[in-house]
Design a protein around this nucleic acid. Sequence first.
DNA 1: GTCTATATGTGGATAGAC
DNA 2: GTCTATCCACATATAGAC
Lengths: 190, 190
Amino acid sequence: MSRKPVGDKRTRLVNAAAKLVHEQGFHRTTLADISEESGVPLGNLSYYFKSKDAIGHAVVERLACAYDALRESWEAAPDPRDRLTSFIQLTMTNRDALSRSGCPVGTLCAELSKEGGLVADSATRVLGELRGWIEAQFRLLGKGAASADLANHLLSAIQGVSLLALAFHDVKLVEREARYLQRWVRDLAG
Amino acid sequence: MSRKPVGDKRTRLVNAAAKLVHEQGFHRTTLADISEESGVPLGNLSYYFKSKDAIGHAVVERLACAYDALRESWEAAPDPRDRLTSFIQLTMTNRDALSRSGCPVGTLCAELSKEGGLVADSATRVLGELRGWIEAQFRLLGKGAASADLANHLLSAIQGVSLLALAFHDVKLVEREARYLQRWVRDLAG
DNA sequence: GTCTATATGTGGATAGAC
DNA sequence: GTCTATCCACATATAGAC
């Protein structure tokens, strides 16, 4: 019952692809890059994925699962305000990666939404699920019909500061905006 | 003194490249695309630009000039609050293009900042000039040391909503966030 | 299932005639 | 200055041995 280095090859491929796509973007990441990073020979990729888009889709599915798990952990808190605080705290925790490579979902949407396609659509869906969850928290806070706008506003702020942090390579931007948003959530009437 | 269709070839090339880069992104735009869009034969591009990066740089310079002109027009208003309102109004005016292709500067930064290089740096500089101008308006409003944070907050909101509008292909997002920000600027104490 | 070798297409850049 | 034809590198995808 011997075990290979880290998980099965499919998992290693998706992990490698996720890392590279986040750091370099989807177009700039080649199958050769993924092969090297994962240690799986180039020609073997096609056994696990029939195309580069299929790898991209698997990467997005992996992100979707990660966000599912995060939301579940945030829901351990009974107060929706605390849940939103946890969400904002995530960007604070990841501020180094954000200022280096941006938001893994947001930059993917920005890069691929212009051309459309399966990967772009699934990345947008991940963003949409997150937005829906945020909106639900505002609803629980009694914001009613304004909840959708508030969710878009919060997600915009997070995505926007991630983009600025990436462009200016400035961690402090995330720190300051996160503090700003934490106050904003705390001070919301309701 | 006969005249060619629209301006000299160099200008036509940059205009075509700007349009395509905005709509498709930098990597996905090929020299062949630019050749076709501009009507300038492929092999002739090298006479005007020595590389694709040189074209990208010219496109960003064109954007920088456009924003210079915009800021100058906004400064016709003596009240900094009105100037900021004009800035926010710009995204409202361009909401259709934003929801189709995102912010011309922001998406370029998102795409290229991960790899660095001349084009990424100049795109970031355009964003920085805009940020500096916004900060100056807040300073004129007496916001003092908080002006930098306020500028980053406003620019983040604009960039964030542009990204969401692009991902979800939803014009209404821009309309609602613009209204939100207009109120925010109007209600700022000072 | 795993891998080497390669086919096929495309993109950026250039050579050189006019 | 302008344009046609082409080179070369590289990326995706596949063929087929083991």
